[in-house]
Write a protein that binds this DNA or RNA. Sequence first.
RNA 1: AGCGGGAUGGAGCAGUCUGGAGUGCUCGCGAGGCCCAUAACCUCGAGGUCGGUGGUUCAAAUCCACCUCCCGCUACCA
Length: 480
Amino acid sequence: MTKKFYITTAIDYVNAEPHIGHAYQKIVADTLARWHRLLDEDVFFVTGTDEHGKKVQRAAENTGKSPKEFVDDVSKKFKDAWTALNINPDRFIRTTDEDHKKVVQEFIKKCDKTGDIYKGEYKGLYCTDCEAYFTEKDAPNFQCPTHKRPLENLKEETYFFKLSKYQKFLLDLYKKNPKFILPKERRNEVINRIKEGLKDLSITRTSFKWGIPFPLDNKHITYVWFEALINYYTATREKGKEKFWPADVHILGKDNTWFHCVYWPAMLKSAGIKLPKTIFNHGFLTFNGEKISKSLGNAISPKTLAEKYSADTIRYFALRQFPFASGEDGDFSEKALIDRHNNELANKLGNLISRVSTLTEKYGLEKTTIKKLKIFPTKRKVEKHLENFEIDKALNEIFAFIDKCNEFVQKQKPWETKDKKVLYELANAIKDFTILLSPFIPGTCEKIAKTFNFKIDIKELNNPIKVSKIKKSDILFKKI
RNA sequence: AGCGGGAUGGAGCAGUCUGGAGUGCUCGCGAGGCCCAUAACCUCGAGGUCGGUGGUUCAAAUCCACCUCCCGCUACCA
């Protein structure tokens, strides 16, 4: 039986357009999905968009579109951005999808059966922008501290989810499963906050219509967060996909930590559904040293970037530059990107392919046993790093191997000796590292495979490359 | 103020959790090699009391305490 691997990203809220921060997360998830697929696992990779709520309803009204037209437009922009970056989810889920609505309603009924949902009243100062209530202490002068607008005094009939009931369950869960919340800095934060006490969660709204009707009372709309989280489960209710639940890893940004690490497991427990194995909370990116924001106008679209550079350059930089596993923030600077593109992709990798393919075209290959350029130590290290989400280190290992190849060419001087065996060893090494590199920069790796006539398949690491006629490769990365 | 991050050869970073010769990466500088290749590639070198002080230890960039200085955040948002 092949191992299954189910990976998800956060689904993006459609009130703003995609930027490089969103892209970073999707690139990482896509790479991990591709890696597990390379290892012959049965992989399911899901990303998508979060489309309900008052903010979206209002954003749509401002543009004169219907909510549905509006979310269709923005959702497509996300989807297109991922295509431009060679990010290929198995499903692009939208919370407006019909199957999602159905699954959410069933989910809520299950929680209700457990006795975890009750009707109550929520009183407070409400900010429509935040879709949240504030206490007078948090909101001096009855103004929203973030939006500086006057708060509405609201008293709403609402349904609650008994989150407080799960306090002990959650703390036990983290204790028993140290990998449930990663990295561990985030875990400690969550634990400390839970220890301050959990309140029940208001999970319905009546002030607007753009959402999933609450199945227990049709005057109510389901609260966006409560509903959106369920998307991960929805995707596995499709026929044939059931086996993928529970998720192996949810990838999300650190601002989503609380919802995913607290609400989500409590909700699943209540509904009697298995819990995901790992929730990975990564850091944020700044862009050219500045925080990414609409008002600063630096929220450059991933698509524009991918057109300016290439999908693989963006992918390589995003994966190599930041210590993903640390959960820390990083800066996406174009200068650093160009640096890595020129030095690592063009000079080291690109030039190696260029020089070896030229030499091979001239002198040909002759089969021999591989003595110097053995891939297995590298493979083991890459495997281990990826298990620990150390994506930057994995890439570093592969490039250390590429350095070894360049040293080998230099030492052996095949242009002088015309030694076909040396060239064979190099071609074989190129096959090997290209296979390992393929989840990171898939487009480039396909080109290399075509030049050297091999298949990108993990089994090919055990098979010496077959001797064939090889033509000089096109330039893979032009210097910037 | 609160919270968070940082201080490592000329620049920018890893390394710190899990202590073991100042190790690594990219750039820059100096010398040499190579002439297959994208003016690319390879080798060697100069340059650092790892912010400071004290402590723990056979051993500290790494652990502990205190101090100094920088920078973010407390706007939407992965």
